[in-house]
Design a binder for these strands. Structure first.
Lengths: 200, 200
DNA sequence: CTTGTACATGTCCATTCGTACATGTCACTC
DNA sequence: GAGTGACATGTACGAATGGACATGTACAAG
């Protein structure tokens, strides 16, 4: 459950309301850790109950800003310190790749081109952000620099995926000419030898 | 819910039992789409009920193998065809990166080195698999070639993350020398400028 | 002075996920 | 013949997630 720590981490930068946090989760962490406002409000209540955060102020329209407590800060730090990192990265794109052999070659090529374009465009956008940060447009505080580092990871991953999609399209591994036909294996029991082992 | 389609995709290669599928989900798709056996058995029941798969055979120890039906195959194909790809990739590694500024520089350097080593090693392992596949050790069927393509994505992503971790460690953006101190912001109200939004 | 929009906070429910627990089979070894 | 370990299938439950619904406030344009 990393939403908890994500919220604590954002609150470590300064007080914020559930609404703020929802927006920032969407904008900054949307692709790497999606979270909707209902979940966020619920989690904030639990965090407050646990004494990791507390109400900082009340604003205009029922706005309730929270502030991290010493305990809360200790908890994020503890989480960051304990080395146990979960290295799984759920990606539908990769899941689909395992089943490319079920697609028509033309369809697959179109799909790969769409994917390439998407990742290339995302990388471009992120690179623009990174350049702006490098120019110091958002200041040079530690949080900004941390975000710059995170941004760099996003850039590299998206570039890697864009180049992968291009490679896959050019290699055209499911082409009709290759051994193993396009719409083949349409029969219920294709009798394929279950490949012993592989890793993703 | 892509577990459904993942199972259908694997069954499209040939009949398999829940146990088989659990193992293959773990081995082949473990990092990109984790699934435990309870969830798999449950989903298989639902798929059978929906007529997308059916019992193929009964084996030694209560073993029950399923086979994909025409309907099921049509459903995977439909899923692959409809362009709607979810591009979110949940990665704890990236989530943590946003909060690097809360870590001690020495701790952060150690963390980045561990991460670099992990991703480099994973990439190495995957590259070995890819080479074996390129040598045709698992045959040259369409499924194997699809897996090769997926594998390539895994290699590139892991290499990108390894190089990112190295870059981050060398850049040392949270170093004591840089503007913005190491273990700073240790007080409950870190007084950091709440970046996007001030509170009311 | 009404209407639209962005702000702001929540409840409710159906799935999905993860973990722990429970059960039973078969093959092999000691 | 007892024990171990891999095979094989499930139930149960609590937590997480996503989406729909509900409510109310402030502000600006018309």
């Amino acid at each position: 459950m990393s939403l908890r720590h994500g919220l604590l981490g954002l609150l470590a930068e300064g007080p914020a309301s559930g609404y703020d946090l929802a927006r920032r989760f969407q904008e900054a962490l949307g692709t790497v850790w999606p979270a909707q406002h209902p979940r966020i409000y619920a989690e904030l209540s639990r965090l407050a109950e646990a004494g990791l955060i507390e109400v900082d102020s009340h604003g205009p329209r029922r706005r309730k800003a929270y502030r991290i407590t010493g305990e809360g800060l200790a908890e994020v730090r503890r989480w960051l310190a304990e080395g146990e990192v979960d290295h799984t990265f759920r990606m539908e794109t990769l899941l689909r790749a395992y089943f490319f052999w079920l697609m028509e070659p033309a369809e697959l090529r179109a799909h790969l081109e769409r994917e390439r374009a998407f990742y290339a465009e995302t990388a471009r956008t992120l690179r623009a952000y990174a350049r702006a940060k490098d120019r110091g447009e958002w200041g040079t505080g530690p949080q900004v620099r941390a975000m710059r580092v995170a941004l760099e990871a996003g850039i590299r991953i998206n570039e890697a995926l864009a180049s992968w999609a291009e490679w896959a399209r050019e290699t055209d591994p499911m082409a009709p000419g290759s051994p193993g036909s396009p719409g083949a294996a349409a029969s219920p029991a294709p009798a394929a030898a279950p490949p012993p082992e592989a890793e993703g």
